Computed example of a mutant assay.
Amino acid sequence: MDTIEQRVKRVVARELGVEEAKVLNVHSFAEDLEADSLARVELVLALENEFDITIPDDQADGLQTVQQAIDYAREALGSAVTA
């Protein structure tokens, strides 16, 4: 079974057209991975689909790095398990 980190990186790589091995936790979607605003919206939608979660717009705006997306998915899934 893939970890949350692996799944996030796979989605990022697929949506932004980069090699999965080159997606690092410290990468910024806009600066390092060159994702424009539309690509970031599509990335959020893909993450929502991958993890079956909802990411509100105000929270999505705060997801600027791969690590932030990983942390958000972990927290959302942790909350879903304990709810």
Rank of each mutant, 00 (worst) to 15 (best):
L45G: 08
L33H: 06
D32G: 06
A73G: 04
D2I: 10
L43K: 00
Y72Q: 07
D32E: 12
G62I: 05
N25P: 09
D36I: 06
A46Q: 05
N25F: 09
L33Q: 01
H27S: 09
K9C: 15
T65K: 02
A21Q: 11
A60E: 07
R74E: 15
A39K: 05
A60Q: 06
A39P: 01
A35W: 07
E75W: 15
K22G: 03
Q59N: 05
A13W: 02
E5W: 03
F51E: 00
S28P: 02
T65Y: 06
A76C: 13
H27N: 12
A46E: 09
T65L: 11
Q59F: 06
Q64G: 04
R14C: 13
P56R: 12
P56D: 07
L63G: 02
D57F: 11
Q64W: 05
Q68V: 02
S37E: 15
V8D: 08
A46M: 10
A30N: 06
D2W: 14
R14D: 15
I55R: 09
D52R: 10
R40I: 11
A30F: 08
H27L: 08
D71P: 01
A30C: 06
L16H: 01
A39E: 15
I55A: 08
R74T: 01
R40Q: 15
Q6I: 09
E31P: 04
I55D: 00
A80L: 15
R10F: 13
S37G: 06
E5Y: 04
Q59Y: 10
G78A: 11
V11P: 06
A80N: 13
L38W: 11
V8Q: 03
V8L: 10
R10C: 13
K22Y: 11
N49G: 14
R74G: 08
A13D: 13
A80G: 10
V44M: 13
E20K: 05
V18K: 00
L63C: 04
L47D: 03
E42Y: 06
V23R: 06
A60G: 03
Q59W: 07
E5R: 03
L45C: 09
A60H: 03
V8E: 09
T3R: 05
V44F: 10
L43G: 02
G78H: 07
T3P: 12
I53G: 04
A39T: 01
K9I: 14
D36W: 02
R14N: 13
Q64T: 05
A69M: 12
S37W: 14
L16E: 14
F51I: 04
V26K: 10
A30D: 11
P56Q: 11
N25C: 13
Q64K: 05
V8F: 03
H27Y: 09
D71E: 15
R10V: 11
V26R: 07
A30E: 15
I53D: 05
T54H: 14
L16N: 01
E31Y: 07
D2A: 15
S37L: 14
T3V: 07
N49A: 14
D2V: 09
I4H: 07
D36Q: 04
I4R: 05
V23L: 06
T65V: 00
D58W: 14
E5G: 09
A13E: 13
D2R: 11
F29H: 03
V41H: 06
A39Y: 05
V11N: 00
E42I: 01
N49H: 12
R7D: 02
T82L: 12
L63V: 03
